[in-house]
Simulated scan of single mutants.
Amino acid sequence: MIAIFGGSGFIGTRLSFRFSQSGKLFQIIDKAPSGFFPEKVLSADVRDSLSPSFFSIPTAFINLAAEHRDDVRPLSLYDEVNVDGARNICDLARAQGIEKIIFTSSVAVYGFAPLGTNESGAIAPFNDYGRTKWEAEQVYKKWQAEDSQNRTLVIIRPTVVFGERNRGNVFNLLRQIAFGKFVMVGDGLNRKSMAYVENVAAFLEYSLDFKPGIHIYNYIDKPDFTMNALVAHVNKLLGKSSEIKFRLPFSLGLMIGSGFDLVAKITDKKFPISAIRVKKFCANSVYDSAIESTGFIPPVPLMNAIEKTVRFEFVEDHKNEQVFYSE
Rank of each mutant, 00 (worst) to 15 (best):
G180V: 07
P212L: 09
A201T: 14
G130L: 01
G188S: 07
D128P: 04
L204K: 06
M194Q: 14
Y140W: 15
D221W: 12
I156R: 03
V160H: 04
W143T: 01
S242A: 15
T132A: 10
Y206S: 02
F250T: 10
G163R: 04
H215G: 07
A195I: 12
R165E: 05
I214W: 01
L173P: 05
K245G: 02
A202F: 08
G163W: 10
T226A: 03
R151M: 06
A202K: 04
K236S: 11
A145E: 13
E198R: 13
Y129L: 06
N199G: 15
F210S: 01
L252K: 04
P249Y: 08
F162P: 06
Q149P: 01
F126I: 15
D221V: 11
A201I: 06
I244T: 05
F250K: 06
H233D: 13
D128L: 11
L238I: 03
L204V: 14
N235E: 10
V139D: 13
Q138V: 12
A232V: 12
R157S: 00
R131S: 13
Y196F: 08
L252N: 02
R175A: 14
Y140E: 14
A202S: 13
V160M: 10
R191K: 13
V185H: 00
D128I: 00
L174P: 01
F203R: 09
V139P: 15
K141P: 03
P212V: 11
E198T: 15
A232P: 12
P125T: 09
P125I: 07
G186A: 03
L189V: 09
E205K: 07
N228G: 03
S251L: 10
S251M: 03
D209T: 14
D221E: 09
Q176C: 01
E198P: 07
F126A: 12
D187V: 02
F210T: 01
G188P: 04
F246I: 08
F203V: 09
I177V: 09
E135T: 12
I177T: 01
G213N: 00
S207V: 08
L208D: 09
G253A: 05
V161T: 15
H233W: 06
R167V: 13
V160P: 08
Y140N: 10
F179A: 09
I155C: 07
F203Y: 13
S241V: 04
Y219L: 15
D147L: 14
I244M: 00
M227A: 05
E137H: 13
E135C: 12
N228D: 03
V197D: 05
G213L: 00
N172F: 08
P223T: 01
F246P: 03
R131D: 10
Q176F: 00
L174D: 01
P212Y: 08
N190F: 03
R165H: 06
F126W: 11
M184H: 10
E205H: 12
L189T: 15
V231T: 09
I216R: 11
E205T: 06
H215P: 08
S148E: 11
G188A: 13
V161N: 10
V197T: 14
L252Y: 05
L230T: 06
N218L: 08
K245H: 11
W143D: 02
W134F: 10
K240L: 15
N228F: 03
W134C: 00
